[in-house]
C-alpha cells in the first residue's frame, strides 16, 4: 500500500509549491490512472509518489509518503527502489547506455543491489518473461524500436521486484504499435498483483486497465473515483482531458439520436 498524506511539494530553487495538500492511497494490486491538463503537476506527483522527490532531486516536501505503513522520509533512493519504481516517457534516456545486450540492461538493477549472480539471472529471466520479451534478450539495447525500448525499461524496473510501479506517460513518445505493446505489458503487469499509478494522455489506454482514475488540476486532486464514472464525467474536456473514443463515439451517436447499447445489441 502506498499512501500520500497531506503532501505539498516545492522544487529546489523555486518559491512556490506545485502540489498542494495531496491525499492519495493506492491499495496493493490496485491500478490507478492519473489525468489532467499540462503543467497540472502530474509528473511532479509521480516523482513524489516514487520518493525521488525529494530523495534524489531535493526540494521541500511537507506531509508524508509511506509504503506498507512505513514512512519513507530520509531514505536514500536505492532503498526506495525496491519498494516503488518509476518509469518515464523516453525509452532512450531510461536505458543505462552501458550495456551491450538487453539481458545485461535488465540485469543492471539486481546487480546494483549486490545480489548473487544466480539471483540476478533468475530475476532477469522472470522480468523478461512477464513482459514476453525473452526473444530480444541478446539484442543490443540501442537497436530497439521505441515500444521495445519502453518494454525493456519496464522489465528493468520489474527486476527490482517493486510492489508499486509509477509510470509517467509511458506511451507519450511511442507510435501506435509501441503504444499497443506497452498497453499489453501493463495488463500483464497488472495481472502480477503489482500496484500501478499510470499518468496517460491516451485515455483509451486507461479505459479497461484502471479500476480508479484521478484528475489533477493546479496541483490539487479535483476528482477521484471509479474509472467508468470519471471517464464519463462531463467536466473532463474542461480539464484538458479527452474522454476515451468509446465514450466520444457513444456521445456522438446519442447526439444523432442513436443508442450505442441498442446498436451493440442489434449487432450481437
Amino acid at each position: 500500500m502506498l499512501e500520500l498524506h497531506r503532501v505539498s511539494y516545492r522544487y529546489a530553487g523555486y518559491a512556490t509549491a506545485v502540489l498542494h495538500d495531496i491525499e492519495l492511497t493506492i491499495a496493493d494490486g490496485e491500478i490507478v490512472g492519473l489525468v489532467g491538463p499540462n503543467e497540472a503537476g502530474k509528473s511532479t506527483l509521480c516523482l513524489v509518489a516514487s520518493g525521488l522527490a525529494p530523495a534524489s532531486i531535493g526540494g521541500a516536501l511537507s506531509g508524508s509518503l509511506s509504503i506498507d505503513g512505513e514512512l519513507m522520509a530520509g531514505r536514500p533512493p536505492h532503498e526506495l527502489a525496491e519498494r516503488v519504481a518509476i518509469g518515464f516517457q523516453n525509452p532512450d534516456t531510461q536505458l543505462s547506455g552501458v550495456t551491450a545486450t538487453v539481458f545485461e540492461e535488465v540485469a543492471l538493477g539486481p546487480m546494483n543491489l549486490g545480489l548473487p549472480v544466480a539471483e540476478t539471472l533468475a530475476r532477469t529471466r522472470e522480468a523478461l518473461a512477464t513482459l514476453g520479451i525473452e526473444d530480444i534478450a541478446e539484442r543490443s539495447p540501442n537497436r530497439l524500436s521505441g515500444g521495445q525500448g519502453q518494454l525493456v525499461a519496464l522489465a528493468s524496473l520489474l527486476a527490482m521486484h517493486p510492489r508499486h510501479v509509477v509510470l509517467d506517460e509511458p506511451t507519450a513518445q511511442l507510435d501506435p504499435e509501441g503504444t499497443r505493446l506497452v498497453g499489453e505489458a501493463l495488463r500483464a503487469l497488472a495481472a502480477t498483483g503489482t500496484a500501478l499509478l499510470v499518468t496517460e494522455h491516451k485515455t483509451d489506454l486507461l479505459d479497461g486497465l484502471c479500476q480508479r482514475i484521478i484528475v489533477i488540476d493546479g496541483g490539487r486532486i479535483v476528482l477521484d473515483g471509479p474509472a467508468g464514472d470519471v471517464l464519463a464525467d462531463e467536466r473532463l474536456p474542461g480539464w484538458g482531458v479527452e474522454p476515451p473514443s468509446r465514450i466520444r463515439l457513444a456521445r456522438a451517436m446519442a447526439g444523432r439520436g442513436l443508442d450505442l447499447d441498442l446498436i451493440a445489441g442489434t449487432l450481437r
Binding site: Y11, A12, G13, G58
Partner: peptide, 18 residues
Amino acid sequence: SRRFTARFPQGEQAVGLV
C-alpha cells in the same frame, strides 16, 4: 534551467539562489 543546476552538489554555489 535552475531546476537542473540546483540539484548538483555544488549547484547553488555555482549559479546562485533565486
